[in-house]
Design a protein around this nucleic acid. Structure first.
Lengths: 335, 335
DNA sequence: ATGAAAGCGCTAACAT
DNA sequence: ATGTTAGCGCTTTCAT
């Protein structure tokens, strides 16, 4: 990486013996010319280590090859994988990602959106941490396309979420497939659309009377739920599908404390596949992964299409989850 | 946020009855003119909702008002707070942050650095997840300034890390101040400079013979260490300083399992103050916070200085940690 | 104190 | 098939 004056397009053009315009077209694959000429220019650019000045290019082409990624997820639990996916999808096209954390601060959100617009981003990807809440920014009527990921989106927007129903079905069927018959679902507050949807599907698989317990998204709730299930008069479950890995962790800890064997007596499936929690649980948790990086990658692709003016069907796209098998269920290896 | 043609500087100039040049200078606080003129232009710009085109500005001024943030921290545990701090320090100056995750992929790193350079970033902040390892990219000889955060940096670079020594001292003295006399330190591998440094200071405070146990940065190691300490012939500790919150969590769990009361019989301090772990531990962990956001904020300030051509003393700057009191130590409230 | 004019490096009509 | 030229919107000498 050397300092020194950068090579300009005019240098390349001169070296290749063509005009500025031809050089531009040759390198951008636009215009019309002999393959030979195009190649000669390419070679010259390559040889001279030409890197186009993105600012100049943006100024004249009205495309900055930059997209903004807005997130309210302060810990990056959801947005980091999404960002990695977005970047992966776009890096080949020379597009980079402006990431801005705004927490739930509307003023900060406005500030960052304006900054993005000033920087002429080609589009904004808005990513959240739950699918039924919005970020505190109004992204309608923007002069650039917007893609929503893992957040609630306005009518008619392009949006991407993980498929809660399919994920819940994977989990429930995995437990059933292991021969577990008395299944219970311990999950987060019913105020979360994801919790309701997963519960709905869980019941669809396990029967309308099966047990669903709503509580907090916490280890403490996992604990408490186990107490309720095991201290009641009904026979306790032999399979537990938990709404997230923290609940699952709390449940597994509680079971160990009361001498119930996991996976011997009970199989437990978590949700999120949060490595740091799932792997540290004893035994490590089998869990549903939302494939957030794939979500990001797809968001990147859609953004690319939009910013090139290609049409994209609006609406909510659901991307599949996958089951990650560890040891909390016993039984088979990966499906 | 309305669509429609953006107001250009020329529009503002016309409205204020001055030339383009004067308008530019008025808004940038440069040049010489009556305060009255400057104000008139400001008002006009304000009234018309003028937002300068960042690309055009960058093209002519050679400053993009953009900095790149490179990180190899895939989970964002360290880099998200750092990014938030950086952004906070820069947002007022109209500077935004390009964030790129590169994991430990040298090729990806090169790619992103080149992309940043093409985009004419004013500087690059390179942030890692341990202070004695580098990212797989060579950032020397770049045509822009570089600031290193929470990562090893080349000789003569500007670099920022949290103060392990001071953090460890806080922890040890807090335990001592609580009247704990038999202290032990359970931490990560001695191959980590941070682990060695904290252990050194721990011994400095507690005496050269006090117990230091190196192992993995995991809950499992916390468990095992407790087994070693409590199953030995020596009287067990009454105060435990753990190298991170996961170790502390493992230790606390192990202690509960063997009926040792925390904080009744033993006080435990963690490190990192990773909310998700510290708060879920029973009892919640008192822990050392590395103030990563402050680290980021300071990195932002330094970058600003550098990119404005102000001189910055090279070398490693250590930023203080702070003790966050929860319930795993008993005793007082916040210091 | 203010303004005219020359770029910054590139793209995209429009000519040839 | 290739080249000429006029911008993109702003900053910045250099005149006045």
């Amino acid at each position: 990486m050397l300092v020194g004056d950068r090579i300009r397009l005019s240098d390349v053009a001169r070296a290749a013996g063509v005009s500025l315009a031809t050089a531009s077209k040759a390198l951008n694959g636009s215009g019309r010319m002999t393959a030979e000429t195009r190649e000669r220019v390419r070679q010259a650019a390559e040889a001279m280590g030409f890197r186009p000045n993105a600012m100049a290019r943006a100024l004249s082409s009205q495309r900055s090859f930059t997209v903004g990624l807005l997130t309210n997820d302060g810990y990056g639990r959801f947005s980091m994988p999404v960002m990695a996916g977005v970047a992966e999808a776009l890096v080949d096209q020379g597009v980079s990602v402006f990431m801005c954390g705004i927490e739930d601060d509307a003023a900060l959100g406005r500030l960052h959106v304006e900054a993005m617009l000033d920087k002429q981003v080609d589009g904004i990807i808005c990513s959240g941490k739950r699918i039924d809440r919005r970020l505190p920014v109004d992204l309608s009527d923007l002069p650039v396309p917007v893609v929503y990921v893992f957040t609630d989106a306005p009518e008619g927007a392009v949006s991407l979420v993980s498929d809660d129903a399919q994920g819940a079905r994977e989990a429930a069927e995995w437990l059933a497939g292991l021969g577990r018959r008395r299944l219970a679902h311990v999950t987060g507050p019913a105020s979360f659309a994801s919790a309701r949807e997963r519960a709905r599907v869980f019941r669809e698989v396990t029967g309308p009377d099966s047990t669903v317990l709503h509580g907090a998204w916490s280890e403490a709730w996992g604990h408490e739920a186990v107490a309720r299930l095991w201290d009641g008069s009904a026979p306790p479950p032999d399979g537990l599908f938990c709404g997230n890995d923290q609940i699952a962790r709390g449940a597994v800890d509680a079971l160990r404390e009361r001498g119930v064997a996991v996976p011997g007596d009970v199989s437990v499936v978590g949700f999120d596949n949060w490595e740091i929690v799932a792997a540290a649980t004893r035994p490590p948790l089998t869990s549903i992964d939302m494939n957030l990086k794939d979500l990001g990658r797809e968001a990147g692709r859609l953004m690319l299409a939009l910013s090139e003016g290609r049409a994209v069907e609006p609406g909510v796209r659901r991307q599949p989850c996958r089951l990650v098998v560890r040891q909390s269920c016993g039984g088979g290896s990966a499906r």
